[in-house]
């Protein structure tokens, strides 16, 4: 139990668990904001495994990758929230099922 280090599989398991929680959130919730937050959970889950592999192989490219993931997340959040505000202005609701204009 009291080993010195955390095995790689534990980090990967945490990452997979958080990713699946994010997927379930996207599939199950109908509130736009909460679905958006679930996407953030998924992005974070990937960062864990990138950095874990870095740590186990003594590289630094994985950390640069997670840095880029954070950049993309920041860009995505700013544009996505602007879209949500624009949608809310057209149709005062946050329920995803009500936005069906682009459906077939």
């Amino acid at each position: 139990m009291l080993e010195d280090t955390v095995p790689l599989s534990h980090y990967l398991m945490l990452s997979a668990t958080l990713f699946v929680i994010g997927i379930v959130g996207v599939l199950v919730r109908r509130n736009v904001i909460v679905v958006f937050m679930s996407i953030e959970i998924m992005l974070n889950a990937v960062n864990i495994s990138l950095i874990a592999f870095d740590n186990y192989m003594n590289l630094s490219s994985g950390q640069i990758f997670s840095f880029m993931v954070m950049c993309v997340a920041a860009a995505e959040v700013s544009v996505g929230l602007a879209i949500i505000i624009a949608l809310h202005r057209n149709k005062p609701t946050v329920n995803l099922d009500e936005f069906n204009l682009l459906k077939w």
């Binding site: 010195d4 280090t5 095995p7 790689l8 599989s9 990967l12 398991m13 997979a16 740590n55 186990y56 192989m57 003594n58």
Partner: peptide, 14 residues
Amino acid sequence: IIFTAKMNTPAILP
């Protein structure tokens, strides 16, 4: 799949 990973100790880090 994950628990077949054989890496149990991190690399020697500077």
